[in-house]
Design a protein around this nucleic acid. Sequence first.
RNA 1: GCGGUAUUGGUGAAGUGGUUAACACGCCGGAUUGUGGCUCCGGUAUGCAAGGGUUCGAUCCCCUUAUCCCGCC
Length: 383
Amino acid sequence: MKIKYNLLKKEKDTKARYGKLETNYGTFETPMFMPVGTKATVKMLTPDELYAMHAGIILSNTYHLWLRPGEDLIAKAGGLHQFMNYHGPILTDSGGFQVFSLAKNKKKDITEEGVHFKSHIDGSNLFLTPEKSIAIQNKLDSDIAMSFDECPPASASHEYLKNSVERTLRWAARGKAVHNNPRQALFGIVQGGAYEDLRKYSAIETVKMDFDGYSIGGVANDGESKEDMYKAIDYSIPYLPEDKVRYLMGVGEPVDIIEGVKRGVDLFDCVLSTRIARHGNAFTRHGKINLKNLKFREDFTPVESSCDCYCCQNFTKAYIRHLLLADESLGQRLLSIHNTRFLIKMMEEIREAIQEDRLLKYCDEFLNKYNSKEVEGEECENS
RNA sequence: GCGGUAUUGGUGAAGUGGUUAACACGCCGGAUUGUGGCUCCGGUAUGCAAGGGUUCGAUCCCCUUAUCCCGCC
């Protein structure tokens, strides 16, 4: 079996959907947030910690695993699940995003055949093609593979994006032609920046190729505006089939996830939860906070009192601040646990709200609180 | 007691008779969206031990005091 998406509920006021995605490594509900584990590990987190926070699926990366340790070694280990001892669903990104950012001279390095770029590890010259990316992912044996796409920013010109969309379609067809892992699903990627005509064209043509799921790419990079991101979603979604799962690549911040869900997106992934954790920041119901700030020096309350994660159940802000300033990695670990659980819990609440047809109310309440920037507890004292 | 050397921010320290006192660490704040695992970007001495003098002008020259270290009795 590859994967099977079951659409179980459409929310009455929005385009949001509730569903379940079956894979060989388990079934999870959507909408869902995927923690990112680029190099065959969600940084700082063990598989047990991921299970405990009810992670439904994680993301890993073709480019990084290709360079180190190499797909053959992982195949020898018995595939990615075996190798990293994670027995839940795994999606692998194709490397398109990394390669695009590593290609110095876009015009010269991105050719019809593939992309020339330099290794971020040793600077050596590398060449990645759609066929190679898919072959690597076949060997990694992830549950879902992504097509190899070109990933230009929304700020690129209409002309550039048009050619890019065409090329991404050809690459998608080439990748699909060589894909040969019967246990692995393959997703197509819609591109086209913030242009309605390009998104529509890209979506329709990609869907014609009949992939196992579809994603919206090219968003959340190069400092694009939120408006452009939302446009990219709005212009793509109407042309995607209802019976296939939809994945918004690289998103994101709680507000962007919410906007994506409302527009009909089922899957998200983002490095933010773990990256900002390593830099000392945490998501809370009242917005993002920086635990290194002086004001938390003697704050002996949890990062988020309403949170059920291991970090919030056992440790205080003052302690975590101390760990961060003392450069003790436990601080980063605890915040990684909290931030990732925060987004997963948010998705749980979103799914409930969809099933009960009260998503708009939920989102308004969540965002009002999240953007209020009030310190936890303040509003109680005032009322 | 005598002689000598030194004294620059929270720390280690550059530096010059002349506009905003280098750099590093620390500290304070910000950033982070298909991850290049301790990152990036800002801010941070109204003052160069204290007082007095020379000078148009002194952290830099001179004197006194305090403290530190070294040597001698």
